[in-house]
């Protein structure tokens, strides 16, 4: 709409990232440079994922509606690359458990934000036309931050040798749930009969992500205090 509106969207999208970095104790560890390195890893992983997708699903530019839930499922499976990338990063970042998780999650999410959401905001939110879409993108960026922290936490938990055996399957399920999160609108469409859009979809995303986050943090607490 105006440059002011673009500023608003930017503040909404990047503010939480900045606050998280500033006030979660990461500054004391000089973690900025490490976050950048994690971002580099993110880039590498995305490149590999793209290569895989291009190799095995070459007709991505077909009509979107034609692709069924199953093909989407197979395509989303490639996102386990993210899990692997995070595993590598987690094993190489030094520091205490929660700092490791924070650096990995935040770095990953920030790189994701920069690469997937900055451009649409830059191109769209400054235009004359007003659309709620850009506010939604910005809010979605916030959900994505929680999601990536979540993912990092679950991956970290998964690689703990001393993780309590009954918790392990729960962690696996949550991990899979996190990876297959992009399928949420399609699954909801199957369940409800119509695909949610806009703020409804955002709310659905936020709810599932926050629930997962609560369970994961509970698992983390029980593990570290145990």
């Amino acid at each position: 709409m105006t440059f002011f509106h673009f500023g608003n969207c930017l503040a909404l999208a990047y503010g939480p990232y900045f606050l998280t970095y500033k006030y979660s104790g990461m500054t004391e560890y000089g973690a900025f440079w490490k976050c950048v390195q994690v971002g580099g890893m993110y880039l590498l992983v995305q490149l590999c994922k793209m290569l895989l997708l291009a190799t095995f699903f070459p007709t991505l530019d077909g009509p979107l509606e034609a692709s069924g839930l199953f093909t989407e499922l197979v395509k989303t499976t490639v996102d386990f690359g993210d899990v692997m990338g995070m595993s590598v990063v987690l094993s190489r970042v030094p520091g205490a458990g929660h700092i490791k998780v924070l650096i990995t999650g935040l770095g990953w999410a920030a790189a994701d934000l920069l690469l997937t959401r900055a451009l649409p905001l830059w191109v769209g939110a400054r235009g004359l036309e007003f659309d709620w879409k850009y506010i939604q993108i910005s809010l979605d960026a916030n959900i994505s931050l929680v999601h990536h922290l979540n993912l990092a936490l679950l991956v970290w938990l998964w690689w703990r040798v001393d993780l309590a055996p009954p918790v392990r399957p729960i962690a696996a399920v949550l991990l899979a749930g996190c990876v297959y999160r992009p399928l949420l609108p399609q699954v909801l469409a199957l369940l409800l009969g119509s695909q949610p859009a806009g703020f409804t979809l955002l709310a659905a995303n936020a709810t599932t992500t926050l629930c997962t986050a609560l369970i994961a943090s509970h698992m983390f607490i029980t593990h570290t205090c145990g």
């Binding site: 002011f4 608003n8 004359l128 036309e129 007003f130």
Partner: peptide, 17 residues
């Protein structure tokens, strides 16, 4: 072009803050 008044942007800023 669909537009909102300037007051709307201001309100949005307050909300975001």
């Amino acid at each position: 072009y669909a537009v909102k008044p300037a007051a709307f942007d201001f309100l949005l800023t307050l909300g975001i803050l």
